[in-house]
Design a protein around this nucleic acid. Structure first.
Lengths: 223, 223
DNA sequence: GGAAATTAACTGGTCACTCAGTCAGTATTT
DNA sequence: AAATACTGACTGAGTGACCAGTTAATTTCC
């Protein structure tokens, strides 16, 4: 989109792969928007964290709103491409695949996008959660634009592997599954608090072993 | 707390029950905070909607933060008392009660608090959702203060009626259940969009008939 | 191949505006 | 008259956006 030389050229030298300021701004946005929310975040803080002048943000991205969308777009495209790939892979391997790997494919890319990113600490997952649950038009349009298409793919997959599901129930199943996933993404620390430390919502793998059976069993109850 | 005469006296005359300005401010807060979020909401708009001078809000509630907590406190106390009552009722009626009514008791009071309130349109439910998922300290403290105690009651109830559940799994079960409930409370209109109108997240009763079996089956898969 | 012209990347300061909160003073109740 | 409820004008801090000007990179023309 607004990408110019500096972004597409990418003469990544060595390990550190010195990134463009363009990307540095997006990275900083992610952190600040996640911590403060859309309104709470300030262009000044984002600029400071990115190590650039505030004016540069308005140079690359016209406004706060455009910046926000660019940030969502970048990460969600990356996540949803992985999701789609995993899903296609599963559907092609078996005539009648299991539900379990499909549900796992729904969540794992989002989790790992949070972990792999240096020091990001699941910032984007946090943004995802608030965006998905928001009542504001801005966030609903983003959900529609960047997440509805992949949602439809998973809904179709649900119907394919659980033929008992009506289309309506498959949609509910998807919504409920996402809802459960939120508790994993939000990383509020509440599970630890409620369990005196027995549960840890920072441990993605532990959570997946709980969430996948929960959701699959729930979905089958709808079929 | 900050309550004075006007609030506790409550000489509710006739049908319309002309409410105090104190409560009018809380009602307006609910609507505006729900639509705009904490940072996005402005005292001006709340005052306007409540039909009072902006200064009056600071007279009754010292700050925006105190107002927010007062608003959460009022509604959550009302909802959680009902929840606790329903739960106790269920646990006393049978030696080994079913899981289903317990799960329903978890959600119905919140839903109905949204519906009964005139023209409120689930504003508080929306606030609940964003509060529960937020990473900010303010919202986590509110969750801890107003929602953790009732959460513990439901977790104990889960363990009682599903003896196969470990404490850790009961906590996960509760978290997941709440997660699913979010999709119902958030009222984003996404189910309708994804299903071409087949699903309606405005219809609480329809959703409960889907959600309760989903969650109960999911919980049993953890036991 | 090198000067000149053009474009892209970037800065620091500033603008008009909005915000939460304050306060002196007025109405209303008891 | 004394306390409580309430108003509306105000403030200082902070906001997103803007812009004139500087530097760096590319292209153009000889």
């Amino acid at each position: 989109m607004g990408q110019t030389k500096a972004q597409s050229a990418g003469v990544e030298s060595l390990s550190a792969a010195k990134e463009s300021r363009f990307d540095a701004i997006l990275d900083a946005s992610e952190t600040v928007f996640a911590r403060c929310g859309y309104e709470g975040a300030t262009m000044r803080e984002i600029a400071e964290r990115a190590g650039v002048a505030q004016g540069l943000i308005h140079y690359h991205f016209k406004s706060k709103e455009v910046l926000f969308e660019a940030m969502v777009s970048r990460r969600s495209k990356q996540i949803n491409e992985t999701r789609a790939m995993l899903l296609d892979q599963i559907l092609q391997q078996a005539q009648r695949p299991d539900l379990e790997p499909i549900v796992e494919a729904l969540f794992r890319p989002t989790i790992e996008a949070g972990l792999s990113q240096a020091s990001d600490g699941g910032a984007f997952a946090q943004i995802l959660v608030t965006t998905a649950n928001s009542a504001t038009e801005r966030e609903q349009l983003l959900t529609e634009k960047y997440y509805d298409p992949i949602a439809q793919k998973f809904i179709r997959a649900f119907m394919q592997v659980e033929p008992g599901l009506t289309r309506a129930n498959a949609v509910w199943a998807y919504m409920f599954a996402i809802g459960v996933g939120m508790t994993m993404m939000a990383k509020t620390g509440r599970p630890a608090r409620l369990s005196d430390g027995l549960c840890d919502d920072g441990d993605a793998d532990e959570m997946l072993t709980k969430i996948v059976p929960f959701i699959c069993s729930g979905i089958r109850a709808l079929g």
